[in-house]
Each structure stands twice: as C-alpha cells, then as structure tokens.
Amino acid sequence: MGFFSVLGDFFQILKHTFRQVFKRPFTYFYPFEDREYPERTRGRHIHVRKSCTACAQCVRICPVVAIRMDKEDKKYEKDCALYFDYTRCVFCGLCVQACKFEALFHTPVVDMSEGDREDLIYGPEKIETLDREPLKWRGRRFR
C-alpha cells in the first residue's frame, strides 16, 4: 500500500463529503412535511354515509372486531353510523373490499395519534370527515 493509493482513497472520501454537503437531506421535516404516500395506502377509513346501505358486510368480515355499527342512527334513508376502533384495527383492507356500495374507503392518512385511548375510537362525525386534505398537504417540501 503506497502513499499514492492512500491519497486516492483520501480524495474519494473528500469527494463523497463534498457531494453530501450540497445535497438535500434524505429525511423529512416531519410534522410540517411528509413523504408522498402511494395511492393504495391503507390508512384510516372514510365512511360515505350517502351510499351506505347498512348491510353490515364490513362488520362481519373484520377479523379483529374493530367496527361497531349503530343501525338506529340514520342520516339518510337506509344508512347507519359506524364506529371504528383504531386501537384494534390492523389495516388489512378487508372491510373496504367487502363494501359493494362504495361507501367505505381507505385514506392515505396514517398518523393518528391522540392523547387519550378513547379518542382513537372514531365516532360517526370523525369517520365521515377528513380533518385535513391528505394529498394537498403531503409531499410538499419546505426546504
């Protein structure tokens, strides 16, 4: 191992260092920016009350009994209220596949944190609305 080969290694290291200095960081400035999630991301659900028919297929297929339905609570003619328990949900996507009336979807929102366990049981108001527009907010870089 001569002097020049060591010098070559040294320059290679310097090259990498300089390249990294002028690159953008690989990490995200998380709560303010986030990566773009794929279209099929199985995040939290959204329930479209208008097309729901209260057929209970999603409740029956759920392998972890995370969905509860209330048939009495009606907004339209034959819909029902759904309660999603996100302390149990495993995001398998079976309920969305079971829904034949296009009333239940996944959204790309995956960060659901709450201060209280009880708040993770999403009631009808919470499951029917998105508190933020996921795709507009995601994938934006601030730096």
Partner: peptide, 8 residues
C-alpha cells in the same frame, strides 16, 4: 364477548 360489541 367482543363479538357482542359489533351491533349485529
């Protein structure tokens, strides 16, 4: 018992 919670 958890199955009784589903509402169906």
């Amino acid at each position: 018992s958890r199955l009784n919670e589903t509402g169906i």
